[in-house]
Design a protein around this nucleic acid. Structure first.
Length: 122
DNA sequence: CTTATGACTATGA
DNA sequence: TTCATAGCCATAA
């Protein structure tokens, strides 16, 4: 069980990246994000050595098995702190609620306080 | 080869 | 500051 994450998507858009383990790499990186912290698609992509593949990271998250597999995809947000809309976990605000539960502070604008919770690689 | 799609990012008005 | 557009990579048709 595992390894076949990317194989599920393959329609037209992306995938094949999984052949390089891109998906798994994304999951591995996201898995390292501690609770109460968030990271960005570009950050994950950069850690993989491909800052331009931020969009593919998004796909990986979309296809991510979820917390059940140890992939807190809800901790992955936009570079400006915004959250995915209409695609996340089956409801808007759900992701935000999960982050708040972990202690992530949100700005009045509805964005994550990146200055405070942006995950930094050590 | 060109077009279309995509949980992104950067830039310009 | 917010909104709109372009660029980005990769795959499929």
């Amino acid at each position: 069980m595992h390894g076949d994450y990317g194989s599920q998507i393959r329609g037209r858009g992306v995938v094949g990246v999984a052949e390089d383990g891109f998906f798994e790499q994304c999951y591995e990186v996201v898995r390292q994000v501690p609770a109460g912290c968030v990271t960005t698609y570009g950050q994950v992509a950069a850690l993989l050595g491909n800052p331009r593949r931020a969009r593919f990271v998004g796909f990986a998250m979309h296809a991510s098995p979820g917390m059940a597999a140890g992939v807190p995809c809800h901790r992955v947000v936009f570079k400006d702190g915004s959250l995915a809309r209409g695609f996340a976990f089956g409801g808007e605000g759900v992701q935000r609620r999960m982050l708040e539960e972990e202690g992530v502070a949100f700005l009045p604008d509805g964005r994550v306080d990146m200055d405070r919770h942006l995950w930094e690689v050590l």
